[in-house]
Amino acid sequence: MKKILIVDDEPNIVMALEYTLKKNDFQVFIARDGEEAIQMAQDKLPDVVVLDIMMPKVDGFEVLTQIKQNENLAHTKVIFLSAKNKASDIQKGMDKGADDYLTKPFSMKKILKTIEEQIRSSK
């Protein structure tokens, strides 16, 4: 079972994501802020991280940087999921090394498709 780490501080969004992913046979972990996300990524070595950008304590860009620096997480794919939808924001996210960038509001189908793509590409 592939491991997915969801990082977002909005519980309602997290809940919907969690339900959908579990239903599709993923093992799901949840972090509510950047700090927790970095810790969780280290501990659980997820295959995909779904990452919000605006969060308390540590922002998504920093989390991404930390993940990229960690050799144990070389296989981990990072997908940004953010309300920031300006071209410059997306550019910035991709430049930092994200594997994909989805904007909120989003459709569950799109998320699932993107996650599966990423998992396939890592094989």
């Binding site: 309602n12 989003f106 569950m108």
Partner: peptide, 9 residues
């Protein structure tokens, strides 16, 4: 986002 996601689910 939350409303949309929840509705979809």
């Amino acid at each position: 986002t939350s409303i949309q996601a929840s509705s979809e689910v």
